[in-house]
Design a binder for these strands. Sequence first.
DNA 1: TAATCGTGGTA
DNA 2: TTACCAAGATT
Length: 363
Amino acid sequence: MTITTLDTPSAKPLLDWYDRHHRDLPWRVAPGMAARGVKADPYRVWLSEVMLQQTTVQAVKPYFERFLQRWPEVTDLAAAETDAVMAAWAGLGYYARARNLKKCAEAVANEHGGVFPDTEEGLRSLPGIGDYTAAAVAAIAFDRQAAVMDGNVERVISRLYAIATPLPAAKPAMKQKVALLTPADRPGDFAQAMMDLGATICTPKRPACSLCPFRGACKALKLSDPELFPVKAAKKEKPVRYGAAFIAVTADGEILLRRRVDSGLLGGMTEVPTTAWTARIDGETSAAAAPFAAAWQASGTVIHVFTHFELRLSIWRAAIATKIDRNDGWWEPVTNLEAQALPTIMKKAIAAAIPLAFKTSKG
DNA sequence: TAATCGTGGTA
DNA sequence: TTACCAAGATT
């Protein structure tokens, strides 16, 4: 008997658990189908995996359905207008994902004959596909024995082996454990089972260990408290930045919009004119920083929390009698804002100035 | 390696 | 209310 066998639980109890308790999701096929020659559509798997990066299943579902309805095949997405893709992605966050999604679709359509590469290495070379997504698509869509490790799997593995090394330093060791656990038979189901286990049983808080197929093998459960794992490096404090946003409204109900540069925060997305977002309260939050002179009226403050800073945006509104010609933007009817590539912070800013701009406005 | 990059839900 | 975090990738 090898050390590997002594140290590595069987995947069988997990697959049995998955057969009974798997989540039904729009991009999935039923468990065990791969063995009968029925594989998930690589386009659907890839699209869902990119959308699910750092994003909840609940948030992804409606976006996934809309994308699939509008662009049923990867070649359809490749042929789409980038602005249309950005507008469809608006609200989902991490907008570089949308730009890379489009680039990836184009690469598949133009350089791979419209067919996704069926190996982890081939997938990994495409835009927006990193270690996790390459392994996930390879395993789920192509039945490859790839080691799939996301945040769920990290949590399960860290507990199963009581790994005391903090993340992200522990990742390579964890990946090795996943590779040893991943079976040659049903690797795609195994990957999805590990993620479902992490999402529903081996949760960050109050895990349901009594229902876990690994309860007999889990070192954290035996030696310590599973909730103490994974150990993570301390997080940095979020700084606060300040700025102002300007909503200019014409008599016939149009507002001034412009396009952000392709790189960086909210890259390529649509915005109302704003100042730079600086670390201190100063003149940049006042009407003096507006793109042009008008009777700017204070319309409150919008607070929005990004990944690495908090933004406090002073909102200014002005009624514009004569539409000023702008070469750095365009006038858009308020009735057509839903079709724009407006990130959530911009919808909040507009809603603060024009409460009825969006049906779903939370004021 | 560390910083950057959104948003909404939950306890 | 605050803190955490959810199927990470890129630079």
